[in-house]
Design a protein around this nucleic acid. Structure first.
Length: 598
RNA sequence: GCGAGUGUAGCUCAGCCUGGUAGAGCGUCACCUUGCCAAGGUGAAUGUCGAGGGUUCGAAUCCCUUCACUCGCUCCA
C-alpha cells in the first residue's frame, strides 16, 4: 500500500523535474538512452550551487585541503593498479533454469553424468524448440530428475506438453559448466566489464584501449606527489576533486540515483599512520563513541579522523537543508568492507523508493561513503609505477630518537606487520614481501612513511535527487466555490535554491510599477540569480516561483512609489515557505539577501 | 541479463477491447482585466499517438520487432 504511494511520489517528482526544467532524459527526441540524464535550466543552477557549496566548505574555508582537476581519461595503468581492470571484468554465468548468476571463477568443479537434450516439441500444439539443454546428475541419481529439469526448461520457453527430443548422456569430470545447486546448464561465461572503454588515437586496437574513469579518486592518488610537493601542505592534509565518472551499471534505476554517467565530489584526506602519531605524541587520541570530536588535533589517529569526517559531512548536509532525521547511517560490517579498508560509514538519505526494514523504518540509500582506506591506494601506485609515494616527516625522525628501545621495537614491529599484510594480500611472494616490509619499517625509523587516507566520497546527482525529494511538498486547498487544487512548493534551502529571488511589479498595466520593478531587478541580478516576472495575477506569479523553489519574492507596489510617504522606496519581501511578508527598504535589499543566502 | 507493466500535446490522462478526419483538463504565449497568494474574459500555438516493420481500401487501435521508463529478480569495486 505505502509502496504505491511512494511510487506515486517519485512519479510526481520526475514529472515536476521535467515540467519545470530541472532534469530531462538524455537524447529524449531519439527515444532516450538508458542511464543518462540532462539537467535543464533550474537543474543546472541547483547542481552548480551544490557543487559550489561543497567546494567552498571542503577547500576554500579550510587551510588543510587543496583542489585538483584531473582528466577523465588517464593511463590505463592507473586502473590496473587500483584494481578496477580486474574486479570490473569478472566473467559471469547464468543458470538457464533459475537465472541465478554466478562468477565463473567461483564455481567448484563437479563430476557426474550429463544428460543432453537436442530440443523438444509440444505434443498438443506441435510447436518445436530446438535449443539444446543439459543437466549434470551426481552419480547414482535417476535420469528422471534430469528429465524433470529439462521439461521445466522447455516449459519456460513456451511449450505446454513437453516431448523431449534426442536424449543422450555422457560421463564428465571436473566441469564448471553446470549450476552447483541443481545441475542445470549455465550460459557461456560472459565478461562483465563495468568500465566504459574507448580508444586513444585514431586506430582502434588492443594497444590503445583506455577507460573513462569509474571514480575521480584515483587521479588524486596518482598525482599525490605533485600536489604534495607544490602545495606546501604537510600531512595531515587533503586533496579534493569534483568531476564526472562513468560506470556501465548493470541496471540503471531510480531516476538519476544510479546512472551510467554521474558526478562525484571526492576528498582524499591523507593522515599519518597510527604508528607515526604514537611515535611523535606518545599515544593516539581516544575517540568518543559519538558526536563531533571537535577541531583536529595533532595526536588524532585514523579513528578520530574518520569520525571527524563523518560528522563534518553530516554538518554539510544539514547546512543545505537535509536534517539528520532525513539521513540514515550504515556502518559497513567486516564482511562488507573491502579487504584494505578499516571502516566505512555510509551516509544515507531516505528516498521515496528506499526500502524499509522489518520494523517498517525507511533504511535509505547511499549519498556518500566515508572510508578509512589505510595506505592501500598509495601503496598500489608505488608498487605499480615504481615511484615513491612516501613522505618524510622531520618530527617523526627527531621523535623516533627520543623513544625507548622497547617503544621503537613495538612501533616498527607494528608497522612491519601492516606493511607485510598489505604485500601478501597484494600477491607479492612471501620472501619479497618480508624484505620490502622490513625496508619500510627501517625507513620509518628515519622519518619516512606512506600516508593513510580517509575518503569522503559523495555523489552529486544523488544529492540533487535527495534535495529535490526533500524539498518537494504539496498542499491542497479548497476555494469558496469548492474547487480544490494542489499546489507544489519546492522548499529548497536558500543556499542551493536555483533562483534566489523573484521580482514582481504588483500589476503590469501601471508603467511606474513596471519601471521601478525593473530598476530593483537590475540592482539584484548581478549579485545572485533573480527572475523578473510581470505576467498574470500576482498570486499566480508567487505560485510559479514556489514550484521552482525560489525562496524569496520582492513585490513593488504603490507604497514603493510613495502612496504612503513613510513607505517610499520600500518593497514587500515574501517568504516562500509560509507566505509571510515583510517590508524592506530598497537600499537595504542587498544586505538583507546577502545575510540569508550565504 | 530475465520477468511483468507502461509509452497519445509541456504535464496528467481519455480514446485501443469492437480499425474510419487526434481529444479533455491543467499549463504555456498574446491582449484585456487584476491594489498581494494559481481570479476572470478573448484569442493563439503545441502531436513522427515512443520508433521500425507487417496485416488492411484505411492502423493511436490488430500482429511482429525494437527503444525508453517503472516494478520485481540479478548485479552493485
Amino acid at each position: 500500500m505505502s509502496e504505491s504511494k511512494e511510487n506515486l511520489l517519485m512519479e510526481k517528482i520526475v514529472s515536476l523535474c521535467k515540467r519545470r526544467g530541472f532534469i530531462f532524459q538524455s537524447s529524449e527526441i531519439y527515444g532516450g538512452i538508458n542511464g543518462f540524464w540532462d539537467y535543464g535550466p533550474l537543474g543546472a543552477e541547483l547542481k552548480r550551487n551544490v557543487k559550489e557549496a561543497w567546494w567552498t566548505t571542503m577547500t576554500r574555508l579550510r587551510d588543510d585541503v587543496v583542489g585538483l582537476e584531473a582528466t577523465i581519461i588517464m593511463s590505463p595503468l592507473i586502473w590496473k593498479a587500483s584494481g578496477h581492470v580486474d574486479t570490473f571484468s569478472d566473467p559471469m554465468c547464468d543458470c538457464l533454469l533459475t537465472r541465478k548468476r554466478f562468477r565463473a571463477d567461483q564455481i567448484d568443479p563437479q563430476s557426474g553424468l550429463v544428460f543432453t537434450y537436442s530440443g523438444a516439441t509440444d505434443s498438443v500444439s506441435g510447436k518445436e524448440v530446438n535449443d539444446s539443454f543439459s543437466v549434470l546428475l551426481a552419480a547414482g541419481k535417476p535420469p528422471e530428475s534430469a528429465r524433470k529439469f529439462a521439461v521445466q526448461y522447455y516449459q519456460a520457453r513456451g511449450l505446454q506438453s513437453v516431448q523431449l527430443q534426442g536424449e543422450c548422456s555422457e560421463k564428465v569430470e571436473n566441469t564448471t559448466r553446470f549450476n552447483p545447486e541443481n545441475g542445470a546448464q549455465l550460459t557461456e561465461p560472459r565478461p562483465f566489464n563495468l568500465m566504459l572503454q574507448t580508444y586513444v588515437g585514431p586506430i582502434q586496437s588492443e594497444d590503445n584501449v583506455a577507460y573513462l574513469r569509474p571514480e575521480t579518486a584515483q587521479a588524486i592518488f596518482a598525482q599525490f606527489k605533485n600536489v604534495y610537493e607544490t602545495s606546501r601542505q604537510k600531512v595531515p592534509f587533503g586533496v579534493a576533486q569534483i568531476g564526472k565518472a562513468f560506470r556501465n551499471e548493470v541496471t540503471p534505476r531510480n531516476f538519476i540515483f544510479r546512472s551510467r554517467e554521474f558526478e562525484q565530489m571526492e576528498l582524499e584526506f591523507f593522515i599519518k599512520p597510527d604508528e607515526v602519531t604514537e611515535a611523535i605524541h606518545g599515544s593516539v587520541a581516544a575517540v568518543a563513541e559519538s558526536g563531533h570530536p571537535g577541531d583536529p588535533q595533532p595526536n588524532w589517529g585514523w579513528q578520530a579522523w574518520h569520525r571527524y569526517w563523518v560528522e563534518e559531512r553530516v554538518r554539510f548536509y544539514e547546512g543545505i537543508g537535509l536534517s539528520r532525521q532525513t539521513l540514515g547511517f550504515h556502518h559497513q560490517t567486516p564482511t562488507e568492507l573491502a579487504h584494505y579498508a578499516r571502516a566505512c560509514t555510509d551516509i544515507l538519505f531516505k528516498f521515496p523508493f528506499s526500502k524499509r526494514d522489518a520494523n517498517g523504518d525507511v533504511l535509505g540509500d547511499e549519498l556518500e561513503g566515508i572510508a578509512a582506506r589505510s595506505d592501500f591506494d598509495l601503496s598500489q601506485h608505488a608498487r605499480h609505477s615504481g615511484k615513491g609515494m612516501g613522505v618524510f616527516d622531520e618530527e617523526l625522525r627527531t621523535g623516533w630518537g627520543k623513544l625507548t628501545p622497547e617503544s621503537q621495537a613495538h612501533l616498527s614491529g607494528k608497522y612491519y606487520e601492516s606493511r607485510l599484510k598489505y604485500m601478501l594480500k597484494s600477491g607479492v611472494a612471501p620472501a619479497v614481501a618480508e624484505a620490502a616490509a622490513a625496508e619500510d619499517a627501517q625507513n620509518l625509523t628515519k622519518g619516512h612513511y606512506i600516508p593513510h587516507v580517509i575518503e569522503p566520497s559523495a555523489g552529486v546527482d544523488r544529492l540533487i535527487l535527495a534535495l529535490i525529494a526533500n524539498a518537494y511538498s504539496e498542499s491542497t486547498s479548497t476555494d469558496e466555490k469548492g474547487k480544490s487544487e494542489t499546489r507544489v512548493v519546492m522548499k529548497f534551502h536558500p543556499r542551493v535554491a536555483p533562483v534566489k529571488v523573484g521580482v514582481f511589479p504588483l500589476m503590469k498595466n501601471k508603467p511606474e510599477l513596471v519601471a521601478k520593478a525593473r530598476e530593483v531587478y537590475g540592482l539584484l541580478r548581478g549579485q545572485f540569480l533573480a527572475f523578473y516576472d510581470d505576467s498574470g495575477a500576482i498570486g499566480r506569479r508567487y505560485a510559479r516561483q514556489d514550484e521552482a523553489g525560489t525562496p524569496f519574492g520582492v513585490t513593488i507596489d504603490f507604497d514603493t512609489l510613495g502612496e504612503k510617504p513613510e513607505l517610499l522606496n520600500t518593497v514587500t519581501i515574501r517568504h516562500r515557505d509560509d507566505g509571510s511578508q515583510e517590508r524592506v527598504s530598497i537600499t537595504e535589499l542587498s544586505a538583507w539577501f546577502h545575510a540569508r543566502l550565504h
